Simulated scan of single mutants.
Amino acid sequence: MNRYLQYGLIAAVAGIAGIAGYFTSQIGDSAGSSTTSTASAGTTEALLALALPDTEGHMQPLAQWRGKVIVANFWATWCPPCRREIPDFSAASRSFGDAPVQFVGLSIDSLDKVKAFKAEFDVPYPLLIASADVLALGPGFGNAAQGLPFTVIIDRQGVARHVKVGTLNQDELERKIRPLIDDKS
């Protein structure tokens, strides 16, 4: 396949995903589409089974954070709503300090762009480099359009408790996470 055609296809797919994410975000923001998850245990296990490279090239298995509340945020540097919510995720991550909470960004993007973004926005949690294939988990979490951003909050027992397609702010994040920190059911 011609190199220019490949680049064109990649740009087209990225543009479509960005537009879908934007409109999904707008719908989610106005409708308050945060939900208690109906994700199957299999979908959550598939997410926790991922091992993806971080910005330093080290493989990071998501399973290493079992036993903590995991806030998995699917995003990309080219996604305007994603860029808008990351400062709130960073602030929420910092506010939990030593609590058993782990934020992790699953970026559908290139390593160089994610590294630059991490440095520019001083993101305090791991940003992992994922392929577009990782978005295939989206429908299992109720994100049939596979729009960005979307966030899955997994409790300390490994159960997806909240899924939000669209942006989350710091207050929303903290309200959803706090009850899960001490819940050991």
Rank of each mutant, 00 (worst) to 15 (best):
F150H: 12
D183P: 00
I154L: 03
L106Q: 05
E85D: 07
G97Y: 06
Q157S: 14
R84I: 15
A92W: 01
I181V: 15
D171Y: 13
T36W: 01
K118R: 14
S33W: 14
S40K: 08
F89E: 03
I181S: 13
D183L: 10
T151I: 06
V163C: 05
P149E: 06
G21M: 04
P80G: 02
P61Y: 15
A39P: 05
Y4G: 03
S110A: 15
D29K: 12
D183F: 05
S40A: 12
V134E: 12
N73L: 10
R66W: 08
A72F: 06
V123R: 01
Y4W: 12
L137K: 07
I129T: 09
A76L: 10
G57C: 08
A92M: 02
F121W: 06
N169T: 05
S25V: 00
P80Q: 01
K115S: 11
S37V: 07
D109H: 08
L52V: 05
G32L: 10
L47R: 02
G138S: 06
A17Q: 14
G166S: 04
S93L: 01
G57L: 10
T35Y: 07
G32C: 09
A144K: 08
L127E: 15
F74W: 06
L173R: 03
A76T: 11
T167K: 03
C82I: 07
E172V: 10
K118P: 02
D122T: 12
L106I: 14
D29T: 13
F150I: 02
E174H: 03
F121G: 00
F96W: 06
S185G: 12
R161A: 07
A11E: 11
G15W: 10
A145M: 10
R161T: 04
P80E: 01
S131N: 14
T55G: 11
F150M: 03
R66S: 09
E56M: 12
A39V: 04
V152G: 05
P139N: 05
K115C: 06
D54G: 09
G105D: 09
Q26M: 13
D112S: 13
L5W: 06
T36K: 08
H162N: 07
A160S: 12
I108L: 12
E120K: 12
S90F: 02
A76M: 10
L173S: 03
T44H: 04
I108A: 07
L9Q: 11
L9R: 11
S33C: 03
R175S: 13
P149T: 07
T24R: 10
G138C: 05
